[in-house]
Nucleic acid binder design. Structure first.
Lengths: 261, 261
DNA sequence: CACAAAGGGTTCAAATAATGAACCAGAGGT
DNA sequence: ACCTCTGGTTCATTATTTGAACCCTTTGTG
């Protein structure tokens, strides 16, 4: 692992529930030497990717990230285009909807919305990267994203997030093949206990899926009616998202989706 | 300069007018060896900070930046809080207003708004870092930000953006001292020709200024009336911005501002 | 009040990882 | 068929990163 990766990984430890991190905590989180972490933090901070709270000495994400995000949004305004569609679908279904983009061999949440009309709801952390083999989004990406994802993923043993996570390579392959045929992925409690979800791919200017759209529902609330409604609604919404991103749904998937609707 | 800084600097070459950059172009922009640049690009991409267009082979900013920006906004929602205030002031004055945050020894635009009611207008690039000695924002930051900024800045010769840029250290010191007394910075064509601007500091949870708010006006349109109106309006708006950021204006500056209004 | 504990930060020899000149490969262009 | 411009790779050399040990300050405690 190169120096750059080590440093950038430090940024991944931040999350809404973990906004400020101190040197010692970084050391335990990253497992690297204190001096190493410190120099990385200093360098990230001097580039504006972090800033230090002079009172607590803790580090938090810096303004450079906002600046770059503004540039990225300007030339590829995914978030602002997609957010309204996510919100509408979440309101229609009354459940949590999220769109994520592929980031290497994970999925990175782009935006999400929860209707908040129920007492129980799915917790969704926008800072957390989603694994490909444990989430419905991930299966959709494996099924319709770049081919190398599956082989890269199987290079290491599959990590179990819950007791229901698919960890057998052959089972994963079979599941992904079924997703390719059905056009929609479904996973029951593969990533979080008591959460079931549907996922479909969304496409950018390439042939392969660039991201996914998914609905996550507390398993207790997943009725047969929802199981019928969600895939149909997802397919429709994902088609719109794909259009907003300036992409096209591949013809063979479009046929599958038409039959499903 | 460490490896991390070299890699992160590559990200700074992106701008709305320059959304995708190839290997060779990166080489000339950064002045580093092709192999070095390439390895850095690969590593940035594998962390999601860049993504490669498989058709053109060019690189563009990646989804990781959006994810981190979402986290940062969640716990320090500067942009979403400040944007409405910027928009209101821009509409009131009919001129371009921007808020920037300090990023090392530069200012990083956070958000801006232009009333767009005039034929001529100031061009403002959100991707461009603002120098401290050439902009009104920068003077405000030098005057009310951390003390070390001035000495760090004077370590190297001052670069001239235009023929009017202050490049003499003593003149800069005198100018900044005047800003500290008056509470508002003014610069005439110091950064861009035919653009004059006023700047004031905004404060976060620290004693020192964390950013600035500024109004930029085409010099030809800078009437005496505007020169009276802008500082008063800026002071009022910057006070609000400071409150939104959870900060407080230092007492001595508050007194100066009260007299000015 | 002394003292321990814990967090942030620094040092410098040792070792690892970054570097860059040279090289390869493919896509246009002439 | 040849040139050239692009992206990408190799490997010995070199310089940068590394980490155990150390220092400083704050905080809590007998």
């Amino acid at each position: 692992m190169g120096t750059i990766t080590k440093a950038l990984n430090l940024l991944n430890f931040f999350s809404p529930s973990h906004p400020e991190i101190g040197l010692t905590e970084f050391r335990t989180l990253s497992g690297q030497d204190k001096a190493t972490v410190h120099r990385h933090l200093i360098e990230l901070a001097s580039n504006g990717f972090l800033e230090q709270n002079p009172v607590t000495k803790g580090y938090r994400l810096g303004p450079a990230i906002l600046r770059l995000a503004a540039v990225r949004e300007r030339l590829f305004p995914a978030r602002s285009l997609v957010a309204p569609l996510v919100e509408r679908l979440a309101t229609d279904l009354g459940e949590l909807v999220h769109v994520s983009l592929r980031e290497g061999d994970h999925l990175s949440p782009l935006c999400h919305h929860d209707a908040l009309i129920h007492g129980t709801r799915v917790y969704f952390d926008e800072a957390e990267l989603l694994p490909l083999h444990a989430t419905a989004s991930g299966l959709a990406m494996l099924a319709f994203g770049p081919d190398h994802l599956m082989s890269d993923l199987l290079a290491d043993p599959l990590e179990a997030s819950t007791q229901y996570t698919i960890t057998d390579p052959d089972e994963l392959k079979r599941t992904v093949e079924r997703v390719q045929v059905e056009g929609v992925a479904f996973i029951d409690q593969g990533f979080e206990l008591h959460v079931s979800s549907f996922g479909v791919p969304v496409f950018g200017d390439l042939k392969e899926a660039v991201g996914t759209m998914a609905v996550a529902v507390p398993t207790a609330r997943m009725t047969d009616e929802l199981k019928r409604k969600i895939p149909v609604a997802l397919i429709e919404a994902a088609t719109e998202v794909t259009e907003e991103l300036g992409g096209t749904v591949p013809p063979h998937l479009r046929r599958i989706w038409l039959n499903a609707a």
